[in-house]
Design a protein around this nucleic acid. Structure first.
Length: 270
DNA sequence: ATGGTGGTCCTACCA
């Protein structure tokens, strides 16, 4: 059995439901993970997703800000929303898919805090929050979760780890999303369960890969000042099944686009 | 060095 999973920071699910329909028509993922849905649970457009074939969903919504959702054509056995850093922010939802091994596959969908502008936790509460979030999630995976189980972690992690994940390593070293301390914290998170970066496993460096281009940059395709902020990771039991990945950056040129492009990975579960 | 754009929801705040 093949599993196609996509992750997309959609920046308002209600405003861009038409773009999602177009993407689903083209790519047809079995599981679609969204971030920044910017809507509370009662107003989530579940019917539209049902019409696209996603009969199962796990939604952690919030009014106006954040919000993550997992839409699935594969039955969801159970799901859960998790809050971090003693905040009620909707940044993490977990769904267990009824496929693959007997216990199923856990999908973790994250929207990690962006972290504000100044990369100093003493001067910037938002950056301190980002650091704490990464520490707490890393400790939780390390202490509570089993690296031998089949798991997928996706989302807008708001960190571009390598020099080939940004348009200019040198010019972004002091820019939040690519600072050494963030890259180190992301490495610790990756180490917590021995996560494999599925996208880089399939398309190794030095190939540049970006999934986000600022709304503020004109001629984004010409200047190509992108960053790879959106990620798909898998635990070791799923590594051998990694088949293909794609970043659909054509979506960045659609009318009223998200500033992020969807990242899709194909996994062979047989 | 600065400001550039876009979302929510109506006034700033967030990215």
């Amino acid at each position: 059995m093949n599993l196609r999973i996509s992750t997309w920071n959609i920046n308002s699910v209600r405003l861009r439901i038409g773009l999602i329909e177009r993407f689903v028509k083209d790519v047809s993922p079995d599981v679609l993970c969204l971030q920044e849905i910017k809507v509370d649970d009662p107003l989530f457009p579940a019917d539209a997703f049902h019409d696209m074939g996603y009969k199962y969903h796990a939604v952690a919504g919030q009014k106006g800000y954040h919000g993550v959702a997992i839409l699935s054509r594969i039955p969801i056995k159970k799901w859960e929303r998790k809050n971090w850093c003693d905040k009620e922010e909707a940044r993490h939802v977990i769904a267990t898919l009824d496929c693959g091994p007997k216990a199923g596959i856990d999908v973790h969908n994250f929207y990690i805090p962006a972290g504000g502008d100044i990369p100093d936790p003493d001067k910037n509460d938002k950056f301190a929050h980002k650091m704490q979030f990464l520490d707490d999630v890393s400790a939780w995976f390390r202490n509570e979760e089993d690296p031998k189980k089949a798991k997928i972690l996706v989302g807008d992690l708001n960190i571009a780890p390598s020099e080939h994940d940004v348009w200019s390593h040198k010019q972004l070293l002091k820019v939040v999303s690519h600072t050494p301390i963030e890259v180190e914290k992301l490495a610790i998170l990756q180490d917590s369960l021995g996560w494999v970066d599925a996208v880089r496993h399939l398309v190794p460096e030095p190939e540049p890969l970006f999934s986000w281009w600022s709304y503020r940059s004109k001629d984004w395709r010409v200047n190509n000042r992108g960053r790879r902020l959106d990620h798909v990771w898998v635990t070791k039991p799923l590594q051998k099944g990694l088949k293909a990945m794609q970043i659909d950056d054509d979506t960045r040129d659609w009318v009223r686009p998200s500033d992020h492009a969807p990242v899709t990975v194909d996994l062979d579960l047989s």
